[in-house]
Design a protein around this nucleic acid. Structure first.
Length: 563
DNA sequence: ACACGGTCGAAAT
DNA sequence: TCGACCGTGT
């Protein structure tokens, strides 16, 4: 994971820190690393999906650390991984195969009665599932902890947040185990934080500015640093045989230009260099520089840095390797935890916690036979559904649900035990419909429409909507980018292909000018035109989103007030 | 000096 | 599973 040997190489630059250094500041957390560690204490219970408290041990682990940060007056901002981007798909499938093998072995040990051996194997097979993340999200909501689900890589989202001013929702440091964060340009990362809050910090400016530390980066900048990282081997591209972090550093220091480095490698390594290495290399670099992230203020996807026109051209306008595009309202639904980013399906169980301000209409509680449930669950309005069936994902989601938005009370329902109680009360008091049915029907209109959108576009996949319990633990993790790619290709008819999300307004948001933006003027003007289209189309969504913000719980409200 | 393959112990309670 | 560490080969 991450950049091969980068942390070892940067050892001279790591400094022990305690998180109290960041008292009063906002600090980002890579949710995956803590989820993964937390899962060790309950790996078997998670896999067997056994009843009882122990299965939820990983939540306790996570919240302990959150409370540690809070105790030190730090505002934690938890960032989750979203969908996987195409370049990474290969690695993930491999990992899944190995996990599966370990799980099967573990089950055999268990049958033999060897519990200890089984646990050991279950631990090797640990995987962080969407449902685990989702349960954690609900806990974070109830504890008023800020969080966001990245459209793709959490690392990229964290780097983006690191580039914002604190008053605009930015963060001052990131807690993670992943060296990729440095390649993404995070100015300061805390690695290996223990339960007392001790960790090892790398501050990228210190790396670039230090005059007497051994591997010298004095003439480096962010771009050269990324080149070095990709040369050394990253998750998106393995290194050329014989090239490790040290050689990568030497080559980049010497030539200070990646094209020269690549041509030198071609002549010295010859056949060892794959034919498409240069292209793959540039794609990998582009992921680190221009990754797709979610802009909370604008409620849509953007690129971390604007894509210069020439770069876009060099890829032939094809930038799906940064992750397929997603409509603003879907991106928002993902970021806020309403939509599973890998399956693009609504989280039905949790959404059923939705508290309606007014009594639900009879239509919403229409009783349905079980076999009917998939259809009816996602169809509150037959007319809308019909349109979806015809147009599939062709329509941007906001168009479809905009008229419904006024009814949606809040996207940020709090899932504490208290609200659970409220829900039960309201269910039984406002209607006489059995709770079982209510649980199925009582969910967010918005998310329902969104999932309907997805559902109808996937009808040809002939795939059943699976409930969370079915999906866990047997279901293959569907990180397959093709689903989403499909969505996108249908959608592109309404959106321009040469799209850049970042407008001029963004520039004041950037805390650091390390993001050397050297876009040509003409590419910029062209993009502004594209942005007009974008802005025009987002307006509706924005207005409706504002309307729904009335009932948001204070922390989230404060967050938005700050921006 | 470096890359790279192998082994070992730690992740949690 | 993943990093840290070590021996070997280039």
């Amino acid at each position: 994971m991450g950049i091969k040997d980068l942390l070892r190489f940067l050892k001279p630059y790591t400094e022990p820190v305690h998180i109290r250094m960041y008292a009063g500041k906002r600090v980002g957390i890579d949710a995956y690393s803590w989820l993964h560690k937390g899962a060790y204490s309950c790996s078997m219970e998670l896999y067997l999906n056994s009843e009882g408290e122990k299965k939820l041990q990983y939540i306790n682990y996570f919240m302990h650390r959150i409370n540690l940060l809070k105790h030190h007056k730090i505002t934690p901002v938890v960032v989750f991984d979203g969908g996987s981007i195409p370049c990474k798909a290969g690695t993930e499938n491999e990992r899944y195969r190995k996990r599966k093998a370990n799980n099967e072995m573990a089950l055999e040990k268990l049958k033999e009665g060897n519990v200890g051996g089984a646990v050991e194997l279950f631990q090797r097979a640990i995987s962080v599932t969407p449902s685990m993340a989702h349960l954690l999200i609900q806990t974070l909501k109830s504890e008023n902890v800020e969080f966001v689900i990245a459209p793709y890589e959490a690392d990229a989202q964290l780097a983006y947040l690191s580039s914002l001013r604190e008053e605009h929702g930015g963060i001052m440091a990131v807690i993670s185990e992943d060296s990729d964060l440095l390649a993404y340009g995070c100015p300061s990362v805390i690695f290996k934080m223990d339960k007392f809050g001790n960790g090892e910090e790398i501050i990228i400016d210190k790396v670039f500015n230090s005059t007497n530390t051994k591997p010298s980066f004095q003439n480096f900048n962010n771009s050269l640093f990324i080149d070095m990282c990709v040369l050394a081997g990253c998750d998106f591209l393995p290194s050329i045989p014989g090239i490790g972090i040290a050689k990568a550093h030497a080559l980049v220091s010497k030539y200070r230009n990646i094209d020269r480095v690549l041509s030198v490698l071609k002549t010295t390594k010859g056949k060892q260099v794959p034919d498409d290495y240069a292209r793959s290399f540039k794609e990998a670099v582009a992921v680190f520089q221009h990754a797709t992230i979610y802009n909370r203020k604008r409620k849509k996807l953007e690129h971390m840095r604007e894509l210069p026109g020439e770069l876009l051209e060099s890829f032939g306008g094809e930038i799906d390797f940064l992750g397929p595009d997603i409509t603003p309202s879907m991106a928002t639904a993902i970021a806020e935890g309403h939509l599973d980013p890998s399956t693009m399906e609504a989280y039905e169980c949790s959404l059923s916690h939705k508290v309606f301000g007014s009594a639900p209409t009879s239509e919403q509680y229409e009783v349905s036979a079980p076999e009917d449930i998939v259809e009816s669950r996602f169809a509150s309005s037959k007319q809308t559904r019909k349109r979806n069936m015809q147009g599939a994902a062709k329509y941007p989601a906001f168009e479809i649900h905009s008229d419904k938005d006024k009814q949606v009370q809040s996207c940020f329902t709090v899932y504490s035990s208290q609200s659970m109680k409220e829900r039960k009360d309201s269910n039984t008091s406002t209607t006489g419909v059995p709770r079982q049915v209510l649980k199925e029907r009582n969910f967010s209109d918005e998310a329902a429409t969104l999932s309907k959108l997805v559902l109808t576009s996937e009808v040809d996949n002939d795939e059943e909507i699976s409930t969370i319990s079915e999906e866990f633990p047997v279901k293959t993790p569907d990180n397959n980018p093709f689903r989403k790619r499909k969505l996108r290709s249908e959608k592109t008819e309404t959106t321009p292909t040469t799209k850049s999300y970042v407008t001029e307004d963004d520039q004041f948001e950037l805390r650091r000018q390390t993001l050397d933006s050297q876009e040509s003027v003409n590419s910029k003007t062209q993009k502004l035109d594209d942005n007009k289209v974008q802005l025009k189309s987002t307006k509706k969504g924005k207005i409706s989103n504002c309307k729904s913000s009335g009932n948001r719980k204070s922390s989230i409200l404060n967050f938005f007030a700050r921006i």
